[in-house]
Simulated scan of single mutants.
Amino acid sequence: MGKINRISLSLFWLILTVSLAIWWFTLGLRQTKTISELSLELGEPNQYTSSGLLEKQSRMLWMEGTFFISMLTLGGSVLIWFSYQDIKRNQLIQDFFSTVTHEMKTPLAGLRLQVEGLMEDLSGSKEYSNILKRALKESDRIESQMDKAFYLASLMRSETLFIEKVSINTIKYSLQDTFPDVKWTLPQEIFLKVDKRAMESIFSNLFENAYKHGLATKIQIVVQPIDLSKSEIGIFQDRTNLINKYINNKQAHEKRVKLSIKDNGRGFQGNLSQIGKPFIRSSSTSGSGIGLYIVKQLISKMNGKIFFSSDETGFEVRIDLPMH
C-alpha cells in the first residue's frame, strides 16, 4: 500500500503543478488580451506601437509558459519514473529475502535432525556431545535469524495476517519445548483474535531478547482479561520520570487481554523511545536489531498496543490485544 501511495503522491504533485501552471498561463494570456482590447477601445495615440508591444509580450508569455509547463511535466515524469524504479528494486530485494529464507529453512531442518541423531548415537562421549550441542545451538540461532528475515520481508511487502480465534494455551504449549523455563500465569482459558504464527514469533523474539541481551534467568508472563469500557491507564516507571500511557479505547465495548512479560535481567539502559526502531541495537551483544521492530509491527497489525518499561528489577513488556 505504501508503494502505491508513493506513486499516487508523485502523480498528484505532477497534476497539481501542471494545472497551476496552465491556470497561470491562461490567466496571463487573458490579461494581455484584455489590455489590448482596452487600448483599442480607448483610442490611444500610439495604437500601432502599443499593439506591437502587447503582441510581443503575448509571444513572450507563450514561450515562457510553454517552457515552464514542459519543465514541470518533465520533472514530474522523472519523479514518477524514479519512484517506480525504486519500488521495483525494493520488490526484488524483498523477494530475494523471502526466497532465500524459505530455501534455507529446509536444509537447516535436515541439518538439525542429523545433529540430533548424532547426539543420540554419541551420547556416551562427553567431548562430542558438547560439540554437537554447540552446533545445535548455532542452528537454532540461524533459524531464528531466518524467521526474523522472513517476517521482515513480509512486513515490507505489507502482507496481511490471518486473524483467527487462538487459545493462549495453544501458544504456550507450542513454545514450551523451546522455552521451558518461562513461567505462565493464566487465570482462565482465554481466546485471542490474532495470527497464531505471528504470536509465536512475538513471544520468541521477546524471550530471546530477555535471555540473550538482557541476561535474564527468569521470565514470567501474566495474562489478564481487561474491559475497555473502563479507561485503563498503564503507568510505567522509567529511571528518571513517570510515563503515562493511555490505551486507545476507540472500541470501548470490546474486551481485550493484557499480557505482561517481565524478566529479572539487567533492563534497558538506553532511551525507551528508541525501542522498536529497525536496526537499533541496545547492547554490544550480537544481534540484527530487527527483533523488537518485528514485534511492534506485528502487534500493530493485530490491532494491539505494546509498551516497554525498565528499572533495576528488569525489563517489562506489556501487550494489549483484542479478545475473541
Rank of each mutant, 00 (worst) to 15 (best):
K3W: 10
I4E: 14
N5E: 11
I7Y: 01
F12M: 11
F12Q: 13
W13T: 11
I15A: 09
T17K: 14
V18S: 14
L20V: 15
A21H: 07
A21W: 04
W24G: 01
F25I: 08
L27A: 08
G28I: 12
L29R: 08
T32I: 15
T34E: 15
E37I: 06
L40T: 07
G43A: 05
G43V: 04
G52D: 06
G52L: 14
L53E: 02
E55C: 07
K56E: 13
K56M: 15
R59V: 15
M60V: 12
T66Q: 06
F67L: 10
F68W: 12
I69Q: 02
S70H: 02
V78S: 01
V78Q: 02
F82G: 00
S83E: 10
S83P: 05
I87R: 08
N90H: 12
Q91E: 11
F96P: 05
F97M: 14
T99G: 05
K105Y: 14
T106W: 09
P107N: 12
L108G: 07
A109H: 07
L111I: 12
V115F: 04
L118G: 02
E120G: 01
L122Y: 11
S123K: 11
S125Q: 13
S129C: 05
K133Q: 13
R134K: 10
A135T: 15
L136D: 05
S144T: 00
K148Q: 14
F150Q: 08
Y151P: 03
L152D: 04
L152I: 10
A153D: 03
L155W: 05
L155E: 03
M156P: 00
R157F: 00
L161G: 02
I163M: 03
K165R: 14
S167A: 13
I168T: 09
I168H: 03
N169G: 05
N169K: 13
S174C: 02
S174Q: 13
L175N: 09
L175K: 13
Q176E: 11
Q176A: 08
D177E: 15
D177A: 04
F179G: 04
K183L: 11
K183D: 07
Q188R: 10
Q188N: 09
E189M: 10
E189A: 13
L192Y: 04
S201E: 15
S204L: 11
L206H: 00
L206C: 06
F207H: 02
E208V: 15
A210V: 14
K212A: 01
K212Q: 06
H213G: 03
I219K: 03
I221C: 13
V222E: 09
Q224V: 05
Q224C: 03
D227L: 02
L228Q: 08
K230T: 15
S231N: 04
I233M: 08
R239D: 13
R239I: 12
Y246V: 07
A252H: 06
A252T: 12
H253G: 11
I261N: 00
K262Y: 03
Q269F: 09
Q269S: 12
Q274F: 06
I275N: 08
I280E: 00
S282Q: 07
T285S: 09
S288D: 09
G291R: 10
G291P: 08
G291E: 04
L292D: 07
I294S: 06
V295I: 11
I299N: 01
G304H: 01
F307E: 07
S310T: 15
E312T: 07
V317E: 00
R318P: 01
P322E: 03
M323P: 03
